[in-house]
């Protein structure tokens, strides 16, 4: 029974920062064992959604249930327990700059377990081997390329063998080779470790290649959802514009402005 319920259930989520409404009643299900992508233009609050799922932010209304536990109702202890079963890869990697690659991956293991040093070492080397960076164990974060830093962050995210990993913009700003590596790793780790993955991204091709299910967010709503194939066939104009990267469509090329003619002739003030 537990296997069939979605790992993450978001219901009627409303979240606002000050006056600005970021989510206006969204519903999402993240199926166990799947790679689910959350896509949308920059500034739609995709990262915010991950922080809400991880309990770093709290919704104004609505609920977020992760593995049967209501994230926004949990006490701090239970929340931390739940987080031990979640991994997260930040866009920047968020590696601890005063620790080596090895120590970064060892960090969650050392913080949460009392394993003997030899076992910690074996575990860390296994995780680093999985992302192909065992040879970089002794390097410091400032010596790594952006792509390598993200792979180390990935190794760290899976260090405690979590049930779920959240990837925040894993493909942004990568060269084609490291992009290919990250795409392959997300897919392989998900299968090999039996994870559930949530990928937040706006890179259509890469995401569509590995996602089992995609949610498209815009303007605080889920505008479309489905498997990658079904989305390509989607009747929604918005989805077509986003997936095909068209410059004009439901999302207008021009930022809202007064009539161009009036602006030129009228000499209106820009304030």
């Amino acid at each position: 029974m537990q296997q069939q319920t979605p790992l993450v259930q978001v219901r009627n989520l409303v979240f606002a920062r000050g006056e600005r409404v970021i989510f206006d009643g969204i519903d999402l299900d993240i199926a166990r064992g799947s790679v689910t992508a959350i896509m949308g233009p920059s500034g739609t609050g995709k990262t915010t959604l991950l922080k809400l799922i991880g309990g770093q932010l709290f919704p104004q209304t609505g609920s977020i249930v992760v593995d049967g536990e209501n994230v926004d109702k949990l006490g701090i202890k239970d929340l931390y327990k739940l987080r031990q079963r979640m991994g997260m890869m930040f866009q920047s990697g968020a590696l601890l700059t005063d620790l080596s690659v090895f120590e970064n991956v060892a960090f969650p293991i050392r913080e949460h377990t009392d394993l003997p040093e030899t076992l910690v070492r074996d575990l860390v080397l296994m995780k680093l081997q999985a992302v192909g960076l065992r040879g970089a164990a002794g390097m410091m974060p400032n010596e790594l390329s952006g792509g390598m830093a993200r792979r180390v962050a990935m190794a760290r995210a899976i260090a405690l063998d979590p049930m779920m990993v959240m990837y925040d913009e894993p493909f942004t700003g990568q060269d084609p080779i490291s992009m290919g590596i990250v795409v392959k790793l997300i897919h392989e780790l998900n299968t090999a470790l039996g994870l559930t993955s949530i990928v937040v991204s706006h890179d259509v091709q890469e995401t569509a290649a590995i996602a089992d299910y995609i949610y498209l967010l815009s303007g605080g709503k889920v505008v479309d959802q489905g498997t990658p194939d079904s989305l390509w066939e989607s009747a929604s104009e918005w989805s077509q514009q986003f997936l095909n990267g068209e410059p004009d469509g439901p999302v207008a090329f021009h930022y809202p402005a007064p009539e161009f003619r009036d602006d030129l002739v009228g000499g209106g003030q820009h304030t």
Binding site: R83, Q84, F90, S92, A94
Partner: peptide, 17 residues
Amino acid sequence: LMKATEQLSGMEMMAVD
């Protein structure tokens, strides 16, 4: 700088206060 580079946030997500 740890805050600006998301290291503190990263720790929170690793269940480390």
